[in-house]
């Protein structure tokens, strides 16, 4: 238990550090931030606009005051106001965050449900047809960037075959069937890359564990193969798989941004891309902060899961 609390504590500290860095980012860049934001392609900005922006962003106050206010605002849930339409950033985020989460969740579940069993099977029948085919497919899936997969899927299934719409969104409550059909391709796109990663790791881990001494002991006890597979092999192979998923959370979240863009899924990324193009700093900061906190949270979850799986970690 102390171990779990320690992990949660560390995560909270990390969140604070992340917020501080995001806050500092604008101040670490050489030059006046407001000027930077307003200059377009080398053309200097109008001094009046710059001054106004500085006031708007609160850059004219001493840095510690700015920091204090930002942190206080964060605790309140206030992420500032968008430079594009002056609406509260937090509102737009709250509206869109669940949709992003839905996509991540669907993709991750798909990846685990496909990757883990496939990897185990490939390891059991190593060198066989399934193993070689699946390994090749996995290598391909890892090589194709997520936005390429998405775009190609749209080309094939939406444009040529016309099985599904190219993109868009309908709330679950409104039209469940259509919602799910629109969810299919984006989650498949996200899940594919992660599934390949899980597959590879599961295969390697199962092969490694199967050769370990304690599996030999299990056989020496006369246990049934299925029992050995589940209780001893897969159980121990889960741990490296969980570790590798943790390592890929970053690209998972990044990939979500791209996939939402390709499929017009109205999650956080649409907001983000527009904001970056418009150099809408408060919006960008707010969204990145939320996603980073999400990232730290997911890492924490994976960490705790690993602790549940491996008692050696719990006992220090």
């Amino acid at each position: 238990m102390i171990w779990a609390l320690k992990r949660v504590g560390i995560s909270l500290v990390l969140v604070w550090i992340v917020a501080t860095i995001v806050f500092l980012a604008i101040h670490l860049v050489p030059g006046d931030p407001a000027e930077l934001l307003l200059s377009q392609g080398g053309v200097a900005a109008d001094p009046g606009a710059v001054a106004e922006l500085r006031g708007q962003l609160g850059l004219d106050r001493p840095i510690l005051v700015q920091y204090g206010q930002s942190m206080a605002g964060l605790l309140r849930g206030d992420l500032g106001r968008s430079m594009q339409d002056d609406s509260p950033v937090a509102d737009a985020i709250t509206r869109r965050l669940p949709r992003t989460l839905e996509l991540i969740g669907a993709g991750a579940i798909l990846a685990l449900l496909v990757g883990m069993p496939a990897g185990t099977l490939a390891a059991i029948r190593r060198g066989g047809v399934f193993d070689r085919t699946a390994s090749w497919l996995a290598a391909l899936a890892l090589a194709v960037p997520v936005f390429v997969t998405g775009t190609l899927l749209v080309l094939v299934f939406a444009q040529s075959l016309r099985w599904v719409a190219a993109g868009g969104y309908v709330a679950l409550a409104e039209d469940p069937a259509r919602h799910l059909s629109l969810l299919a391709m984006p989650s498949l796109t996200i899940g594919l890359g992660l599934a390949a990663v899980v597959f590879r790791m599961a295969r390697a881990a199962v092969l490694d564990v199967a050769g370990r001494d304690y599996v030999r002991t299990a056989r020496a006890k006369g246990l049934r193969p299925r029992h050995i597979l589940t209780r001893h092999v897969v159980r121990n192979a889960l741990m490296p798989v969980v570790t590798v998923v943790a390592l890929h959370l970053g690209s998972l979240l990044g990939g979500t941004v791209l996939v939402e863009y390709v499929f017009n899924w109205p999650g956080l990324s649409g907001l983000l891309v527009d904001a970056v193009s418009a150099r809408d700093y408060p919006s960008v900061v707010g969204i990145i902060l939320v996603i980073s906190v999400l990232f730290v949270g997911l890492n924490l979850l994976v960490d705790l899961l690993y602790g549940v799986l491996d008692p050696r970690v719990r006992h220090g």
Binding site: L252, L253, V257, L272, R279, V284, I288, I291, S292
Partner: peptide
């Protein structure tokens, strides 16, 4: 702690 793509986008902003 930052997803790579997002950090990149922050700097690009």
């Amino acid at each position: 702690c930052f997803p790579p793509l997002l950090l990149a986008m922050l700097v690009v902003t």
